[in-house]
Design a binder for these strands. Structure first.
Lengths: 210, 210
DNA sequence: TTAGCACTCAGTATAAATACTGATTAACAT
DNA sequence: ATGTTAATCAGTATTTATACTGAGTGCTAA
């Protein structure tokens, strides 16, 4: 069996050393490099490093660690990113998942779980433990809790607006005057607590109304 | 300790009987009712049934089971819904979570896990096992895979548009002419393959570009 | 070195949205 | 009964967006 090749990315040398020390004990895992920043990581990849897994802290000094996951995934399709962080924040987890991360580990995990995560991801599967899943679930449930109280008619209008129909077109479709639709739009914006159509559609999309 | 009061909702009597038979063995769980449809369930709740948990199949004959979770949550805040279904579909899981479900079980789970889920939810915590979390994660990662290829500048403009700034305002902020911003808008819409600003914002929101 | 793309900018005309002022009717719950 | 809300409709003026025609510069990768 081939070794799982890993690059560790974290701005704290001591932490990198610790990880290396732990992972060195396993014959099927090999640390092929370390980076102390996103820039350094990207430079290494550009220079030809080709790890199976990048183990990455997302509170790096240069920029947002979550964005780099996406970037890396686009440029180096085969590399799988496992986030390791102290941030027990559902939004971070969701963002990481959406950006293509293969795993999300809290720094509170133990050795055994770290290794299990790496091996799981090494097989091409994703690794998110119960705690992390919980964070994600809780966050998603919260997002939905923004009550809207739009009437049926308003929802209907909102959906048509979001589909790109103009006020006039909607009026024709619903057999009412354009004035009516305009009133609806104003009321919808008031209820969603936004100032204009762009924000209205954004908020509607975020709240899954459309 | 109080018993966890459960209503089983499923359109197959045999399945309800099976669940009842399993759960009856546990002293701290009590089946206080059964419903064979959403309508029946809602009627029971209206009549005063007040379960801790509703164990619900989401492929019921009358309407979409996922929507009823939301409805129930709004009208009966204290009731926790646990979905039990044969649909191993990430989108369903995501939707269930967003609608406020406290758990999602595949019909392939065993007795032990069913009971564990009920007890966990009974304590007010959510229960989503590794398999289900996996489905959810996979689905979310997929959604993100729609490539966009917007340039940095275009993303910047897009985000400002979504925040409700007008073309002129954006032009002032970025120290370029309004023409330039208009060109950007047109290019963004072309790249996102949409016909107007409303669709542009909707698509951007759905793809988490903003 | 040439082709493509990002980014910038222009005029003219029309279509649409927004801001302000209002109003009537019907349903529904306190 | 009375207040609240949904749903409908109106005029006028202004601001924005859109559609059509374009173009020049500078970078980069084939």
């Amino acid at each position: 069996m081939n070794k799982i090749e890993v690059i560790i990315t974290d701005d704290h040398k001591l932490f990198r050393d610790g990880l290396r020390s732990i992972l060195q004990q396993f014959d099927d895992i090999e640390i092929i490099g370390e980076a102390s920043s996103e820039i350094e990581l990207m430079r290494m990849l550009k220079e030809g490093y080709d790890p199976d897994i990048v183990l990455m802290d997302i509170s790096l000094p240069d920029g947002n660690g979550l964005d780099i996951i996406k970037q890396m995934k686009e440029e180096y399709v085969s590399i799988k990113c496992v986030v390791i962080t102290m941030h027990a924040d559902g939004q971070y987890v969701v963002k990481a998942v959406k950006n293509g991360a293969y795993g999300y580990l809290l720094k509170s995990v133990d050795q055994a779980e770290l290794v299990e995560a790496i091996k799981t991801v090494g097989l091409g599967k994703k690794y998110f433990n119960a705690e992390v899943s919980q964070l994600m679930v809780t966050d998603m449930a919260l997002q939905q809790d923004q009550e809207t109280n739009l009437s049926e008619r308003e929802l209907e209008v909102l959906r048509l607006v979001a589909q790109g129909y103009t006020t006039k077109e909607i009026a024709n479709q619903l057999y009412v005057s354009a004035r009516t639709i305009e009133t609806h739009r104003v009321n919808i914006m008031r209820k969603l607590n936004v100032q204009n159509s762009a924000e209205m559609i954004k908020k509607a999309a975020k709240c899954d109304l459309i």
